[in-house]
Amino acid sequence: MTTHKKIRKAVFPVAGLGTRFLPATKAIPKELLPIVDRPLIQYAVEEAREAGIEQMIFVTGRGKTAIVEHFDMAYELEATMSARGKDMSALDATRATPGDIITVRQQVPLGLGHAIWCARAIVGDEPFAILLPDEMMIGTPGCMAQMVEAYNAVGGNLISVLEVPREEVSSYGVIDPGATLENFGGALTEVRGLVEKPPVAEAPSNKIISGRYILQPEVMRTLENQEKGAGGEIQLTDAMARMIGTQPFHAVTFAGDRYDCGSKVGFVEATLALALAREDMGAEVRAMAERLLRA
């Protein structure tokens, strides 16, 4: 049985300005906006930890220091809560041990590919994960845990995909699928190509790229010489497309729910869905929603 290098590191591109959510994001990073009672970035970090990832690499920009502080110790808060006998469990998932979280700065917003490249010195010569916090993936196990399981079997590069109605494919990056690995129950598919926002009639499939990646370190060298693509930015999709055929490349069809929290409607949907699923508030939220719908 082939042993593949363990996925120990994950990159979180969090340098974006969050302009879709202004004025809320004028002083607060978009990644700290709460879904019920946890900020968006915390869901992504917890997903990575569940998958066995040990080091979180935040690619930040100006005004994003609060993201790191969220995972730091809050001595005054914790001391006050402890003295008053308050339940401290809500803070447990926000604590990081030394070395768990590292930040690098993307000084110029040149695209997702450039943000990933900014983490090259920390990633080194190891395969690594990428999680886009805007893409909220809820499942049991989580999306990254499903991908790590597949990676341990086949190695190489992997991306998460979801099937969408055919008429929606022109809004996304789409894979050109090859053979399906039957021993994975149809969830693992060979990737022969990547097409960015194809016309519906020309789309090679209805499987869209959905914000989770496991990539080999060679992608950093590809990105180093990458020319600007769509939108005048350095695109990660372009770099991945150049690696197809030189290394194994597969897509994992995520078994779970995805919420596009980069849009206001998706953000509200995620908040409502997670609130409804909570034992401590689900019934009340459902009654409230039904009441509002009757109004």
Rank of each mutant, 00 (worst) to 15 (best):
M73R: 14
Q107N: 10
K9G: 03
L236K: 04
P165I: 03
C118K: 06
T180M: 13
D238H: 08
D87I: 13
A255S: 07
V68K: 03
T60M: 15
I67P: 02
R278D: 15
T180A: 13
I214W: 03
V200R: 13
S171Y: 01
D100I: 00
E290P: 04
T180C: 08
D280G: 05
M81Q: 14
M147V: 14
A241I: 00
I101T: 08
E167Y: 08
D72I: 09
Q226K: 03
D238T: 12
R105T: 07
E149P: 02
T94M: 13
L162R: 05
K30N: 11
Q55D: 03
T19K: 14
E218S: 02
M147W: 10
F12C: 13
A66F: 05
M240D: 08
L110H: 01
P23S: 09
L112S: 05
L162W: 00
L17N: 10
H250I: 01
E54T: 09
G18F: 02
V14W: 00
N157S: 04
E290H: 11
P13A: 13
K264R: 11
R291L: 14
E69R: 15
I138C: 06
R95L: 09
T103A: 15
G231K: 06
I53D: 00
Q146M: 05
F128H: 11
G245R: 11
G178R: 04
Y43Q: 04
V268W: 06
P29Q: 05
E196H: 10
P98C: 12
N183H: 12
R221L: 12
I122Q: 08
E69Y: 05
Y151E: 14
R192W: 04
I244C: 07
M73N: 15
P23N: 05
L112T: 13
R49G: 08
N152P: 01
G99N: 05
I7G: 14
G211H: 01
V161K: 06
A239Q: 09
A277Y: 08
M73Q: 15
L215P: 04
V14F: 07
E269P: 01
K5E: 07
P13N: 11
A10Q: 02
L40R: 01
D72M: 12
G232I: 02
V219F: 12
T103Y: 08
T97F: 01
D280M: 01
H114C: 04
G113S: 09
G186Y: 12
A79H: 06
H114Q: 08
H114N: 11
I130F: 11
Q55F: 04
E227V: 01
A255Q: 10
G178H: 10
G142W: 00
I28P: 00
G211S: 06
A255P: 00
A119M: 10
N183L: 11
H4L: 07
L112R: 02
V219M: 09
I101P: 14
V169S: 13
F21K: 03
R49K: 07
A145E: 11
E149W: 04
A187P: 00
V59G: 07
V123Q: 07
I102L: 10
T65F: 12
Q55V: 12
M240N: 01
A270F: 08
L77V: 10
I214K: 03
I159H: 03
E284Q: 13
T246S: 15
L132D: 07
A275Y: 05
F128Y: 11
G229S: 12
E78M: 15
R95F: 10
M88R: 03
I138R: 01
I102S: 03
I175L: 13
I41F: 02
